[in-house]
Design a protein around this nucleic acid. Sequence first.
DNA 1: TATGAATGAGAGTTCATTCAT
DNA 2: GATGAATGAACTCTCATTCAT
Lengths: 188, 188, 188, 188
Amino acid sequence: MVNKRERILNAAEHLIAHKGFQGMSMQQVANEANVAAGTIYRYFKDKESLLRCVHEERLQEVSQALLKGVNTQQPCLAQFRVLWRNCLHYLLSNPDCLLYRVQYEASPLFTREEEVRMDERYFKPVFEFFEHGRETGLFRDLPAELLGFLAMENLMLLTQKHTRGCIQLSDAIFDELMDAAWNAILKR
Amino acid sequence: MVNKRERILNAAEHLIAHKGFQGMSMQQVANEANVAAGTIYRYFKDKESLLRCVHEERLQEVSQALLKGVNTQQPCLAQFRVLWRNCLHYLLSNPDCLLYRVQYEASPLFTREEEVRMDERYFKPVFEFFEHGRETGLFRDLPAELLGFLAMENLMLLTQKHTRGCIQLSDAIFDELMDAAWNAILKR
Amino acid sequence: MVNKRERILNAAEHLIAHKGFQGMSMQQVANEANVAAGTIYRYFKDKESLLRCVHEERLQEVSQALLKGVNTQQPCLAQFRVLWRNCLHYLLSNPDCLLYRVQYEASPLFTREEEVRMDERYFKPVFEFFEHGRETGLFRDLPAELLGFLAMENLMLLTQKHTRGCIQLSDAIFDELMDAAWNAILKR
Amino acid sequence: MVNKRERILNAAEHLIAHKGFQGMSMQQVANEANVAAGTIYRYFKDKESLLRCVHEERLQEVSQALLKGVNTQQPCLAQFRVLWRNCLHYLLSNPDCLLYRVQYEASPLFTREEEVRMDERYFKPVFEFFEHGRETGLFRDLPAELLGFLAMENLMLLTQKHTRGCIQLSDAIFDELMDAAWNAILKR
DNA sequence: TATGAATGAGAGTTCATTCAT
DNA sequence: GATGAATGAACTCTCATTCAT
């Protein structure tokens, strides 16, 4: 039953975000998914495997959310605005997402190779956008990954602080931030 | 013996970075510090207390490293260069540092209030630098914290990726990045 | 499996008697009950809960044993004889019983209120017997509890000494003792 | 220094009574006695040995308290009254005493042989009193130990209940009880 | 003789995983 | 396929005991 696998993944997703990678117990997953503890092992080899799957599913979701409405025919700045806003909205409406991210980066679950492979697999179009901007001389002469970081990653840390209540955000701040990000990657 | 307390803290630091907050066991700390398990409890009330101490000590160390050689009499850009380079070098020579940070942000160990309080305590001069730049109209009209994030936080994610081997860095790239960071916070 | 719960209770009963409340370890209980250590926690929340259950079950057993064959239609002395003999036989065939009792009285497990409540719950008919004898002027004008002590408690200490081998008992002695107990409570 | 040994014994005495045989830690004893933990081991081989010593000291104290003012020249009833009252007063003014007793009886610390030996050593005069009464035909034809139990032991259980607040006592009740005890051992 | 830091075995408890049903 | 009772290794923490000072 695909349904059960899905329920287990969702339960795990939720629990990881709130209890952390090691704080989540398989029994809790089973309870939240409304299945027996043993059932999880029909769908996932072990806890680690379950966590990997949750991560991959989440990566896929994020990549789809990021690229939604991005039209490569449009000018770069327009594309950038869409990308950046997609990222912002996804982060704001999925506060758990950042919690995950942190959990995963913190865990010794994925090796470097795996991480690189997954980034390439799910975020290829994003990298291509930055690579294209660099080749046309619009962006700084930095690897696409770095340009991506410059432009987007601070958003994550920012919304994380916001979610935790350490910082107050506003539309004006968002516009200012987007402009800052754009200026960070722009060639002088 | 101060020595023993130090060894325990270092062992914990290392283990947290690589195994995570909950993944680190007191027995592992004891082994790595070359003391008996019970000895840890002479110096720290319990696991939580040990983790908190590691965090505070690390914060202090980071703050000292960041501010080293920063002269408030110099022009802003010069100060910024020192700050940024200090940050870069610290991160490169303390690859575990970011992993900690992530572990702590992910853990329910500190409340928001505590975190804000600690940030203020240890990073006041850094915040003041950005606040001053903002007041003189040099930097964007954003809270000092946000300016700080824009300028420095991507560095953290960057070096993390670098440390994990996902990205190749070079001096030329660093200069480019510092310039990007400066442009991100500069008022247009 | 009711069987397992029972085995755990029995094992705990035996161990408490011989090693004491704190001297008994959960691992020992597990070994003696032939279950895994973790299994105990499926049936009992924690050690305290297990100990409480053992106590309540034992109280119930004792109260049933004491009252067996007591017929309130019979004369007081006849009832007393049955009560007293029941008590004697139970104590002789359950040498651990007194050791428990002592362990529980010594432990901070039950508050006074709980103890009084449990006594009332399980030994109400016994108290009523003594109360009735007092109201009819047969027994001394003492609270039922005290009459109960006078009549029965020395039996407990006695059989304890006997069980530990400090004293030799015989039927003749028992008869003499029962007579002594009867005379102790009788109004002059 | 005799002083230190004494202080350790007193500290242990107090702690056993309130925390129990196993609940008392050597560190607590050291703290309460104002000595270092290691010092205890200069005076006592180990924890068990310390406990044994506390017990013996206490037995001696009890035996002295019981026999105080007993004059073997007086009539039996007079002697009995003194004995009984001594016991009552000792128990009431040393509520810890009963707690000990219970702790010791509950612990596997003393073998039967040791207990018999100690009883004989410290309570010989008491036993002789009862033995004498029996030989002269005043008391029941029961071993002196049993006569002793009949007469005195219920007092212990009684005052224990009193100390724990389960029962209210009064002078009238004491007189009644002493009379009851006397009648219990008297030959009919 | 006295100290108390250090030890490490063992306590209670949790939980990923298995397997008979 | 699905269950959940059972397992036992591993966790955090305590404490009787030792030993260098």
